[in-house]
């Protein structure tokens, strides 16, 4: 189980993700933007961040850079629409371990989370 921060400017996406992650037994906090996400991280760092790519003010790439610099052990997973594919590739190069395409399917979310948890386990044990 992990503490997971969900970042998305769309409330409906935050709700869907939160509900599923809670069902799977994780601790979930949400943020509607990158700045709010950093506030959460400073208060109690999440082990996994699930973050939308396109958001107003600061996008997912900006937040990924902040997380990588400030909390290098945190696992970052991008959530994206099909039109954001080039940005997703950029985020993978910057260290995002996986991404979940929208609309968010249960299977794809589960796969991404399994991978994030496996990476987290590796980092914990190393």
């Amino acid at each position: 189980m992990a503490r997971i921060l969900v970042v998305d400017d769309e409330e409906s996406i935050r709700d869907i993700l939160s509900r599923r992650l809670l069902q799977w037994g994780h601790e979930v906090v949400t943020a509607s933007g990158a700045e709010a996400a950093l506030v959460h991280m400073r208060q109690a760092p999440a082990e996994i961040v699930l973050c939308d790519v396109i958001m107003p003010v600061h996008d997912g790439v900006w937040l990924l850079r902040q997380i990588t610099e400030g909390w290098p052990s945190t696992i970052f997973v991008a959530v994206s629409g099909a039109q954001d594919m080039n940005t997703v590739v950029q985020m993978r190069k910057l260290g995002a371990v996986d991404f979940v395409p929208k609309p968010i399917g249960r299977e794809m979310l589960h796969q991404a989370l399994e991978r994030a948890l496996a990476t987290l386990e590796t980092r914990r044990s190393s």
Binding site: A82, M85, V88, V97, P101, Q111, E114, R115, A118
Partner: peptide
């Protein structure tokens, strides 16, 4: 076709490869 996403995992949760 606009995009193609592929991923291959060894269950449970070990990513072997993926692409877009």
């Amino acid at each position: 076709p606009d995009t193609m996403i592929e991923r291959y995992d060894e269950l449970p949760g070990r990513r072997l490869q993926d692409g877009q």
